[in-house]
Design a binder for these strands. Structure first.
Lengths: 205, 205
DNA sequence: CCATCATTTCATCACCCGTAGAATTCTCTT
DNA sequence: AAGAGAATTCTACGGGTGATGAAATGATGG
């Protein structure tokens, strides 16, 4: 019955944070276009105008939840700095870890779901992959065209995330994370029909 | 001034086909959510109701342009049937060819752009990757867990397409297709820092 | 206890959306 | 020539959208 009182609420609940959190959920599940400010407001139990009040616009709301957590940079640096061997494995493991952990998964999902249609999200994804994820690694490549090589590695991670978490292709979606870590090379050799390319060739080099 | 006459148009223009074609363009550029029937109608120079008349609903319009062209199955079968060596290269080349060719690119783009938010498109993508693209190849794998291995190969293709054509990560988007064909293994070895993993290891095995 | 300020809701605005039914015009068959 | 059926547009419904400005309410510091 009682329509919610208006004006400032008693108690110091951090509503801004609550809105941001529900926005993450909504954007993660329906993407940028599929999410309305009104729906976010509904989830947060709040008037739509309040969302606009705190974040200015839908676009800026999205930008707010796209921010890369600070500690991530450190983790990536650690991966880059470690021993040369198994660096690929460690990167994949770190990446999958981000997706398996509830807190970060939603943000990633929101960005990936939206990147294909929302330019700002696409820019965010480019930044995430090329600067944050691969930037620190490029310097370690002693190959011709290291930028391209690193970007191709990034494209594998992107493909893995999309197929496993967004589009949910059965075989990949239901696999144990550790089955995905030994990088895909180990599958390709089989196409030559020799069946010897089992695993771990990278490690043994 | 003159508003378009109503009633049947003189001359036997195939309007249905025109609508479908413009719909492809629109869905390819803005995804399912970002495209309106009214916009498609505008592009086709036609009343919005005509779109509905021919295709029934937005969803069914999308379904219509998602159909996989028949000759594709044959091409894939050819890739699968060829010699074991270089099968990976041939698959990548075929896949990239589909994207580089104007006619097929739009359909693929429409599906990829929409798959992340529209369930029907996601199902289409799953079908395309797992049945059409990889189905014929799975049988050739003499490895444990061939379904997973094939699906992981598919995820690489998906990642490549998204990074190159949708999100447009500079290094990959501007590369010559042939630079992308030698499968990504050739980049990973460099992470071990030995710099010897140049190219063509697959072929030489 | 009063003034200020942050928080919250209300009431709109101006659009855009997908779909449906009826009316109009043309082509084709007989 | 007539009648049937296909192609096309018109009009409209019910609803959702992002954004804005004003009002109400509570907390806070003097």
């Amino acid at each position: 019955m009682s329509s919610p009182r208006r004006g400032r609420r008693p108690g110091g609940a951090d509503t801004r944070q609550a809105i941001l959190s529900h926005a993450r959920t909504a954007f993660a599940e329906r993407g940028y276009d599929g999410t309305s400010l009104r729906e976010v407001a509904r989830l947060a139990g709040v008037d739509p105008a309040l969302v606009t009040h705190y974040f200015g616009s839908k676009d800026r709301l999205f930008a707010a939840l796209m921010r890369i957590p600070d500690n991530l940079s450190a983790q990536i640096a650690a991966v880059a700095a470690g021993p040369d061997a198994e660096r690929g494995d460690r990167l994949v493991r770190l990446f999958l870890g981000l997706w398996e952990h509830e807190a970060t998964r939603k943000s990633l999902m929101a960005v990936f779901r939206s990147a294909v249609s929302h330019p700002r999200a696409a820019e965010g994804l480019r930044g995430f992959v090329s600067d944050a994820l691969l930037g620190p690694l490029v310097a370690r490549l002693s190959l011709p065209n290291p930028r391209l090589r690193a970007a191709l590695a990034g494209s594998q991670l992107v493909g893995l995330a999309i197929v496993r978490y967004i589009v949910r292709l059965e075989a990949v979606a239901s696999a144990d994370p550790e089955e995905l870590v030994p990088d895909p090379r180990s599958s390709f050799p089989s196409w030559d029909g020799d069946g010897t390319g089992e695993q771990g060739r990278l490690r043994r080099r």
